[in-house]
Amino acid sequence: MGSHRRLVPSGFDRGASAAVCVLSAAAAAFGAVPAGPASAAPTDDTRADVDRLYEQAERATEAYNEADERADALREQVGSAQDRIARKQERINRMREALGALAGAQYRSGGIEPSLTLLLSKDPEDYLDRAAALDRISAHHAEELDDLRRAMRDLARQRAGVTGKLEELERSRTAVARHKRTVERKLARARQLLNSLPDDERAAYDRASRTGRADLPGPGTAVAPDDRAAAALAAARSALGKPYVWGANGPGGFDCSGLVQWSYAQAGTGLPRTSQAQRHAGRQVPLSEARPGDLVLYRDDASHVGMYAGNGQVIHAPYPGAPVRYDPVDMMPVSSVTRV
């Protein structure tokens, strides 16, 4: 997340270090007690710690997104399975009622010895017709009973499957809560460290975080590989300036993978929720062949993603406190480029 500020040679860190040197020299010249190199190092370390915490929080955010997506899928599966079970239970209830009626009719018709019934019958022909029908009812009865047994076995299997899904869903909910606590703890520690910086250092860090680099060139004239990529890039550009909100996928705020997912959704294309899954949402191309709309994945674990915008730049949601913005494509180590 924030680690790219250490990798960009013209970023905040170099300017901050130069400012410290100038202030130290001026203080020495006027005989003041300087906040010299000994105090500059802890400040640099603090900024590095903040960057590291933001990076760890982003990894936890993507883990949260994955667990949350899994929980959503499981909830949908459980809901569909419960609907199927309810319909099957209704069918079984109807089959039981029908079998009960058949059994009652058979009992009433077969309760007297058939030969005696024939002797007592006023119309032997009518009796024989009814006896033949009863045989057919008995055969149908047996078939219905077999159907009922099969339906009940199938229902029992489905109930067991739903029980397993519910247990898995509970585990996913627990994972979501755990990752959420991790993210919040990392971000709280980062804010605490930022608040420990001197006012001028904190203000400079905040300006760098909120405005990005002012010296970036325009995105250039590179053309997207197709209309879909062009539409996704246009959507990402429309989100410039929106805040980073961890776990969010628009439209009011975004995390890194949420921005990419939302942008391609505006182009009519569904993408997975996490940056790790987005890495495999298309074919891999070399960074040297990146075109506008391509997904640029960062770090070996693909825990950050941006959208290539042309002219060596990406649009991305960097980290808390920094809005959706342009940054150099090489702001941090690139692991792969995916063309959706």
Results as ranks from 00 to 15, higher is better:
residue 142 A to T: 08
residue 196 S to E: 09
residue 265 A to Q: 11
residue 158 Q to K: 11
residue 2 G to H: 06
residue 36 G to W: 04
residue 158 Q to C: 07
residue 27 A to T: 09
residue 297 L to V: 15
residue 221 T to H: 12
residue 279 R to L: 13
residue 134 L to C: 04
residue 46 T to W: 12
residue 322 A to K: 04
residue 164 G to C: 07
residue 76 E to D: 14
residue 256 C to P: 04
residue 171 R to Y: 04
residue 129 D to Y: 11
residue 21 C to V: 15
residue 37 P to N: 09
residue 238 S to R: 00
residue 336 S to W: 00
residue 308 Y to L: 04
residue 31 G to E: 10
residue 7 L to S: 12
residue 96 R to S: 06
residue 171 R to V: 08
residue 339 R to P: 00
residue 145 L to F: 09
residue 109 S to N: 08
residue 334 V to L: 09
residue 169 L to Y: 09
residue 156 A to Y: 02
residue 96 R to V: 06
residue 324 V to S: 01
residue 276 Q to R: 13
residue 155 L to A: 06
residue 190 A to D: 02
residue 2 G to W: 02
residue 276 Q to F: 15
residue 107 Y to A: 01
residue 282 G to Q: 13
residue 18 A to T: 12
residue 305 V to W: 00
residue 258 G to S: 02
residue 153 R to I: 05
residue 104 G to E: 05
residue 334 V to M: 01
residue 4 H to Y: 09
residue 187 L to Q: 07
residue 139 A to E: 05
residue 243 P to G: 12
residue 269 T to E: 05
residue 103 A to R: 15
residue 329 V to A: 01
residue 116 L to Q: 09
residue 156 A to R: 08
residue 158 Q to P: 11
residue 194 L to A: 02
residue 27 A to E: 10
residue 251 P to M: 00
residue 57 A to Y: 13
residue 25 A to H: 11
residue 281 A to F: 04
residue 113 E to A: 12
residue 322 A to R: 01
residue 314 V to I: 13
residue 308 Y to F: 14
residue 219 P to Y: 07
residue 144 E to L: 14
residue 332 M to L: 10
residue 89 Q to W: 03
residue 71 A to C: 08
residue 5 R to M: 08
residue 278 Q to Y: 11
residue 117 T to Y: 06
residue 149 R to G: 04
residue 197 L to M: 08
residue 330 D to H: 09
residue 27 A to L: 04
residue 203 A to T: 06
residue 309 A to T: 02
residue 247 G to T: 09
residue 313 Q to N: 08
residue 311 N to M: 05
residue 166 L to S: 02
residue 28 A to F: 14
residue 180 K to W: 07
residue 181 R to M: 04
residue 61 T to Y: 13
residue 171 R to Q: 07
residue 26 A to P: 03
residue 273 R to L: 00
residue 136 R to G: 09
residue 228 R to W: 01
residue 25 A to P: 13
residue 338 T to N: 03
residue 186 K to H: 14
residue 278 Q to T: 03
residue 212 G to D: 00
residue 270 G to T: 10
residue 325 R to H: 14
residue 146 D to S: 08
residue 37 P to A: 15
residue 219 P to A: 06
residue 295 L to N: 11
residue 94 R to V: 07
residue 187 L to K: 02
residue 217 P to L: 03
residue 254 F to Y: 10
residue 174 T to S: 12
residue 311 N to A: 11
residue 193 L to E: 01
residue 55 E to Y: 13
residue 153 R to A: 03
residue 131 A to P: 03
residue 304 H to V: 07
residue 163 T to V: 06
residue 155 L to W: 06
residue 298 Y to A: 10
residue 226 D to V: 01
residue 26 A to Q: 11
residue 44 D to W: 12
residue 39 S to M: 15
residue 332 M to R: 08
residue 51 D to C: 12
residue 52 R to A: 14
residue 1 M to T: 07
residue 146 D to L: 05
residue 286 P to W: 01
residue 329 V to K: 02
residue 22 V to C: 10
residue 263 S to M: 02
residue 288 S to F: 08
residue 80 S to F: 13
residue 40 A to I: 11
residue 89 Q to L: 11
residue 156 A to M: 03
residue 338 T to G: 03
residue 187 L to S: 00
residue 323 P to L: 10
residue 288 S to R: 10
residue 57 A to G: 06
residue 193 L to C: 00
residue 179 H to G: 06
residue 17 S to Y: 13
residue 9 P to F: 06
residue 130 R to W: 12
residue 235 A to S: 05
residue 96 R to I: 04
residue 301 D to C: 06
residue 308 Y to R: 06
residue 230 A to H: 09
residue 17 S to I: 10
residue 315 I to H: 02
